[in-house]
């Protein structure tokens, strides 16, 4: 990493800004002397208050939204066991991509089961996201799929549309769980207890 002419240019720009039309030089607030120090004291106090609030908020998040450090494999294994007696089949990343429009490689882990029959709306999905920013993308994709499939089933298979209406969707920390199945509540319990 070599120092280039840009360094000089930066200094020039910053110098210009320092000398330029900043409202700081308007004289409304003194910079020196005791008044300046009292302002610094007040700002320092506010800074500590903000720091305390940040720490309190993080502690709150730790208890409210975090999950245990269980790996994807551990949670997926528990969910898989609960699905062993179902008529659902495990699907690969391409099917996941086709049905939800998402790339499995973008996530820490994806487990997707769906029914062998096209007449069935049953499916179960478990995703561990890499960062919180992905949660919205996954839940939106699930909601879009539920809406599209409900439209498709409504006319000729209202019982399947009902399954979709009662679908379980849960976000716990970095895990997103979705189950459209008459046993959805049972699968969700397994998911919750596996965390």
């Amino acid at each position: 990493m070599t120092e280039t002419k840009k360094e000089t240019a930066d200094a020039g720009l910053s110098g210009m800004i320092h000398d330029g039309g900043d409202s700081y030089l308007s004289g409304k607030e003194p910079r020196n002397g005791s008044a300046g120090h009292s302002h610094a004291g007040l700002f320092g106090l506010m800074r500590y208050a903000a720091a305390v609030l940040i720490i309190v908020y993080i502690v709150f998040l730790m208890f409210q939204t975090s999950v245990s450090s269980r790996s994807f494999d551990t949670v997926a294994s528990a969910v898989k066991d609960s699905l062993a007696s179902s008529n659902l089949a495990e699907r690969d990343g391409q099917r996941f991509k086709r049905n939800f429009g998402l790339n499995s490689a973008d996530f820490d882990g994806v487990l997707y089961y769906s029914s062998e029959s096209v007449m069935s709306a049953e499916e179960v999905l478990l995703v561990k996201v890499k960062s919180a920013s992905q949660i919205r993308a996954v839940t939106e994709a699930i909601e879009e799929r539920i809406a599209a499939r409900t439209d498709a089933f409504e006319e000729y298979a209202p019982d399947q549309a009902k399954i979709l209406e009662d679908a379980q969707l849960s976000v716990r920390g970095r895990f997103v769980f979705y189950a459209a199945s008459p046993d959805g509540a049972k699968y969700r319990e397994v998911f919750d207890s596996s965390l």
Binding site: H37, A40, M46, R47, L53, I58
Partner: peptide
Amino acid sequence: ILLILSIIFNYFCGREIDADSEN
């Protein structure tokens, strides 16, 4: 909320450092 708190924290830090510029 973390973003907003971080902004508030750094706003006051900046003001404090600037106010202390003579020290």
